[in-house]
Design a protein around this nucleic acid. Structure first.
Length: 191
DNA sequence: CAGTGGATGCTCT
DNA sequence: GAGCATCCACTGT
């Protein structure tokens, strides 16, 4: 049986939530799979969008946990976060990679590529594959079109940790979390 | 393999 | 006007 993830799950420290979410299943209108990679962004972190205070773009980060924060990246891509911590803290985890399990052909046509590992191996790619855009910004994660369930299975999983990708501030912190054995990561973890 | 640069739109200074 | 929580194509080993 799979357990839906609701608001209390997210109302904790981002660095506790991110590893707990590895292996969780995410679907948008039935298309999705298992999340294998996250990055954590705390409001005290200069690399976080919420660091400088509330703005129009990051408003959802200041709202209740368990909601989606979607923003446009480099004018081209969309990226999706899950809001964490108690309401008002303004922290979130960025979903960076996913192992496709459902709606793979739909992902292929949306992405224009065939290889499964190229469908969702990056935050912009997975939003394109799952058709996540700004219309999803602020939506609750425990209601349609989202389906978000906890990791299933008793076997322990190995979580890799490393520096975050593509940032220019606070680069020294190892706040990227991934499923060590997965071949669907956006990039391998070093050492 | 590694490194570079362009596309592109929006937010914030 | 600068700077992106990116991706892809291209270059040179």
């Amino acid at each position: 049986m799979s357990r839906p993830l609701r608001r209390p799950f997210f109302a904790r420290d981002v660095h506790a939530v991110a590893p707990d979410l590895i292996g969780a299943s995410l679907f948008v209108d039935g298309v999705g799979g298992l999340i294998v990679e996250f990055e954590a962004y705390h409001h005290t972190d200069p690399a976080a969008h919420s660091y400088g205070g509330r703005t129009a773009r990051n408003a959802v980060m200041f709202g209740p946990p368990g909601h989606a924060y979607v923003y446009r990246s480099y004018g081209i891509h969309w990226c999706v976060n899950f809001v964490c911590e108690p309401e008002g803290i303004a922290s979130a985890v960025l979903i960076r990679a996913l192992q496709p399990t459902a709606g793979v052909d739909k992902m292929r046509s949306r992405r224009g590529v065939d290889d499964e590992w190229l469908l969702c191996s990056g935050p912009g790619k997975l939003c394109q594959a799952l058709a996540i855009t700004r219309v999803h910004d602020g939506l609750a994660l425990d209601a349609p079109p989202f389906t978000l369930h906890a990791r299933t299975g008793d076997a322990p999983i190995e979580i890799a940790v490393g520096p975050r990708i593509g940032i220019s501030k606070a680069m020294e912190h190892p706040w990227r979390y991934g499923l060590k054995t997965s071949r669907f990561l956006s990039r391998p973890f070093r050492s």
